[in-house]
């Protein structure tokens, strides 16, 4: 049987949704695989939604907005672009970034909409079903996606993305403009850190573990793990569990 991908599409009301309607009015035929959630603006699409979609077994997600410069809300699609970039970086750490695509469709582009749906459906078909559907590795994949979701919910990371345009164009409160490359580096680090932190929490949910043990389990150098443990303690997510022979073990103390 041919694999029929389950695809979710987020379409902005003013351009892409209208473009999809136009495809309908023009009777342009395209694959039936996409289910559309209408949002007023592509900038409304919280990256967390997409992590949620993958956790629920959806094979691919399309986010479509007005062409850059045409946003009904002036700059919403630029924000969408930044969010999706961040999401893509995050997803690439668990080999999922291929399953999400951001593109632009105007209200006059019924054909383009249909073509994007055709291409993306074919692309996902080639990739095969989401690994979430594979029973053998499901747990591992869900853990990974949970780590992604954790990162996407993280206050600091979200604040960074929310401020990206401001910080890279207008500058911070001291008027310092952060060069884009530098910003990307900061963002990359932040994403990596959040994903590792979540992995740490996952490992110490049930029982306390020592830094060397955690380091071994998640394959990260012990000094880095210690650094993350300090941060997570400061956030009130982790605390000392016991001290055995002067080696402390840590345990997560709050459901996240």
């Amino acid at each position: 049987m041919v694999f029929e991908p389950k695809i979710l599409g987020f379409l902005c009301n003013w351009c892409s949704y209208a473009g999809a309607d136009l495809a309908g009015v023009s009777r342009i035929q395209y694959p039936t695989n996409v289910r559309v959630i209408r949002v007023m603006c592509s900038g409304r699409v919280d990256p967390v939604f997409i992590a949620e979609a993958f956790m629920n077994g959806i094979d691919g997600v399309l986010v479509l907005g007005c062409h850059l410069g045409d946003c009904h809300y002036i700059s919403g699609n630029y924000e969408a672009e930044l969010k999706m970039k961040m999401l893509s970086k995050t997803l690439s750490m668990i080999s999922f970034s291929d399953r999400v695509r951001l593109d632009w469709v105007s209200a006059a582009e019924g054909n383009r909409f249909a073509q994007i749906v055709r291409d993306f459906t074919e692309h996902i078909r080639k990739l095969g079903p989401s690994p979430v559907k594979n029973k053998k590795i499901k747990k591992e994949i869900i853990d990974n996606l949970n780590a992604v979701k954790f990162a996407l919910c993280d206050t600091r990371l979200r604040a960074l993305v929310a401020r990206q345009r401001e910080l890279t164009t207008e500058g911070n409160v001291y008027g310092e403009i952060i060069p884009t490359e530098e910003f990307e580096e900061i963002l990359d680090n932040a994403i990596e850190n959040e994903i590792i932190r979540h992995k740490i929490i996952e490992k110490i949910k049930k029982e306390g573990k020592s830094v060397p043990d955690i380091a071994k389990e998640i394959e990260v150098e012990p000094h880095k793990v210690l650094h993350h443990i300090v941060t997570l303690r400061a956030r009130g997510l982790v605390d000392v569990d016991q001290i055995n022979e002067e080696i402390p073990t840590f345990k997560s103390i709050k459901e996240v």
Partner: peptide, 11 residues
């Protein structure tokens, strides 16, 4: 205008 960009961005 209810675009929702702030909601998707709020840390």
């Amino acid at each position: 205008k209810g675009c929702g960009v702030c909601g998707a961005s709020c840390p």
